[in-house]
Simulated scan of single mutants.
Amino acid sequence: MGSFWGAVRIGLLDMRGDLRRFLLLVVCLAVGTALISGVNSVGASITRAIDDGAAELMGGDVELSRADRLATADELATMAGFGTISTTIDTNLRAESPPGRRLCRP
């Protein structure tokens, strides 16, 4: 326990002239932490608002999807009976170049 108080005493002696700088460091750390948590909080609020109101923002009430094929004409006609429909196609593409050639300029 004596070594702990010795270390505290040496630390206090070392900070004698730098106490203001140390307090400035503590204040800067506190302000930085508050800013980071504030930005995270605002980001989470925006994400939650978009997730909660996605149907109103996008103008849709129902989303139907198929991963294996496009909807047939019969399926499209059935969906059109319930209201306006829109079609979105998601793709997963990868670009390749022939051996010895580049996709972009050096």
Rank of each mutant, 00 (worst) to 15 (best):
M1A: 13
G2M: 07
G2N: 12
S3R: 15
F4A: 11
F4N: 10
W5L: 09
V8F: 01
V8L: 04
V8C: 03
R9F: 05
R9Y: 07
R9A: 14
G11Y: 10
G11A: 14
G11N: 07
D14S: 14
D14T: 12
M15V: 05
M15C: 12
R16K: 15
D18E: 13
L19Q: 11
L19M: 14
R20L: 14
L23E: 14
L24C: 05
L24D: 09
L25C: 12
L25Y: 09
V27C: 08
C28M: 12
L29H: 08
A30R: 03
A30T: 11
V31A: 15
V31I: 14
G32P: 03
T33F: 03
I36W: 08
I36V: 12
S37D: 06
N40L: 14
S41I: 04
V42E: 10
I46K: 13
I46F: 11
T47G: 05
T47A: 12
R48T: 14
A49P: 02
A49C: 02
A49W: 02
D51C: 02
D51E: 15
D51I: 00
D52R: 13
G53N: 15
A54V: 14
A54L: 11
A54N: 10
A55W: 02
L57H: 02
L57G: 03
L57A: 09
M58N: 06
G60T: 04
V62W: 13
V62D: 15
E63T: 15
E63W: 02
E63K: 08
L64S: 05
L64C: 06
S65Y: 14
S65M: 10
R66Y: 07
R66G: 01
R66C: 05
A67V: 11
A71N: 02
A71L: 10
A73L: 10
E75R: 04
E75C: 08
L76E: 04
L76Q: 07
T78N: 04
T78M: 06
T78E: 08
M79Q: 01
M79T: 00
M79E: 00
A80N: 05
A80T: 09
A80R: 10
G81D: 05
F82K: 06
T84V: 01
T84W: 00
T84C: 00
T84Y: 00
S86T: 13
S86Q: 08
S86N: 10
S86F: 01
S86L: 03
T87K: 02
T87G: 00
T88N: 07
I89G: 00
I89R: 05
I89W: 01
D90T: 15
D90G: 07
T91K: 08
T91D: 02
N92C: 03
N92G: 06
N92A: 11
L93P: 00
R94P: 01
A95C: 08
A95F: 03
A95E: 04
E96Q: 10
S97I: 02
S97C: 14
S97V: 09
S97N: 08
P98Q: 12
P99M: 03
P99N: 05
G100C: 03
G100T: 09
R101N: 05
R101H: 12
R101F: 13
R102K: 14
L103W: 06
L103G: 13
L103I: 15
L103R: 06
L103P: 02
P106L: 13
P106E: 12
